[in-house]
Amino acid sequence: MALTKEQVLHVAKLARLALSDDEIEKFQRQLSVILDHAEKVMALADDGVPATAHALPLSNVFREDVAEPCLPQDKALSTAPESEQGRFKVPRIMEDPT
């Protein structure tokens, strides 16, 4: 299927990518080709086939509820682009959480 420019813009917003006009045009073209190809193949899998999320026949893997040592604060923050008062500093948050 051919993607519209609006769809590409919507996906870029969901993916938090500030794309250039050129990129939007390019991805609109390339994604359409890839999806077109995929759709033909996908037609093979009918509704009777179950989905495989995990190739391994494993289940019920847990850890016991035991507290373990944490990273020291300075190490936790060592990778931060910016920090203040022991916290990760970010620009203004305009949206409320979900």
């Binding site: 936790a76 008062q85 022991g86 916290r87 990760f88 500093k89 970010v90 620009p91 203004r92 948050i93």
Partner: peptide, 9 residues
């Protein structure tokens, strides 16, 4: 009204 935010995990 915040100028910036600080995150604690």
């Amino acid at each position: 009204e915040a100028k910036y935010s600080l995150v604690d995990y």
